[in-house]
Write a protein that binds this DNA or RNA. Structure first.
Lengths: 197, 197
DNA sequence: TTATATATTGAATATATATTCAATGAATTA
DNA sequence: TAATTCATTGAATATATATTCAATATATAA
């Protein structure tokens, strides 16, 4: 038997999780409140009992993502390459077990790019931008030969945009995950590492 | 002095080009007819004089893309790697001069992925899918050491999803293009080529 | 020049969908 | 048990936006 508080918390989590999946797969505007309600098996009216608006629900997800995807900042690593490979390994391993981690990553990327999203929410997503930070790591690492030659910012941009493209596609291609046809970490690392012996 | 026919043709082209840019930057649903009308500097009513619906306008763009992005199929190449590098070179060079080539590429990619798009239009976009075709080329090329080891389909998927991610981001980041911070072809080729001496 | 066809507009309409709300039932508390 | 608070619903409302249309201006044709 669940108490009312627990019940409420579970409901909220259910909505959050269904909404996340839908937002990622259909985008913010194409995800209708009705879609979420149906996915969570409840009336539209009830949705508004738990979240005051579609926008606020979306904002809550973005805030979760803002915390979650900040993780790598705190990771410590032996050499700068493992900063990147470690993050990718995590993402790929979660892709199978806990797709919501992957979904959150994709959600953030979409929010940063899409202009159809309420400005103040987009700001939050833009605050978490791996490109800038990684450019610094790449620049430093280039001196020791960890990374290939080239504009550090452009390298960082290429790497993260690629990761984003792959994750976005994976999010709507469950069969790739089931079949075990996930890209390998090294393939992507080679974008920034370049050709080594 | 322009004749009416020419005038009409120019108007259509203007609408097409503004719509393409907006669809790519904001997505199908977030692009309002009013946005296109404003961008093309005409009334909403006039839009409907030239295109019978937003959907039909979008479909026309997708059909253009279906022809355009088929191009590499006809390219002949000395070794299988130039099949990919040639396509990338083209895309990057057009990114500066004729962004609409890049836009068309992105539009197709988005249409393939997004479920918010009318089904019959999405079908058209799905008909042009580089992943399948490239997987065959990669598989064949692997035997001669042109490509790295690994599931050919997964390699193709990784490559094209990366390209897509980069182009999509470039489409909304004009400053990257202006600053000349475009990724280099080799960086992306190394996803499938791997580490060579 | 006159008549006809096309271009253009702004206002009207239709529709989808977010949001509100009054009513009802179920759980909690006194 | 009685009173009160919370959960839930379906119907009503508000709003945004695609689409239609009648009216007007401008170009072409006779």
């Amino acid at each position: 038997m669940t108490t009312r508080e627990e019940q409420k918390e579970q409901r909220r989590k259910l909505i959050i999780s269904k909404a996340l999946e839908l937002f990622v797969k259909k985008g913010y505007s194409d995800t209708k409140i009705g879609d979420i309600a149906k996915a969570a098996d409840m009336s539209i009216g009830l949705m508004f009992h738990y979240f005051e608006s579609k926008e606020q629900l979306y904002e809550e997800l973005i805030k979760m993502g803002a915390e979650g995807t900040n993780a790598p900042k705190e990771m410590n690593f032996e050499n700068p390459l493992t900063y990147f490979s470690g993050f990718l390994d995590m993402l790929f391993s979660y892709a199978k077990e806990q797709p919501w981690v992957l979904y959150l990553f994709v959600l953030m990327a979409q929010a940063r790019r899409s202009t159809g999203i309420p400005a103040h929410i987009r700001e939050i997503a833009l605050g978490v931008n791996q490109v800038e930070q990684s450019a610094g790591i790449i620049e430093a690492g280039q001196q020791y030969g960890y990374f290939r030659e080239g504009d550090p910012y452009a390298l960082s941009f290429a790497f993260w945009s690629s990761v984003q493209g792959i994750m976005e596609q994976l999010a709507v291609s469950p069969e790739m995950i089931e079949k075990g046809q996930l890209p390998e970490t090294d393939w992507l690392i080679d974008i920034i590492r370049g050709t080594k012996a």
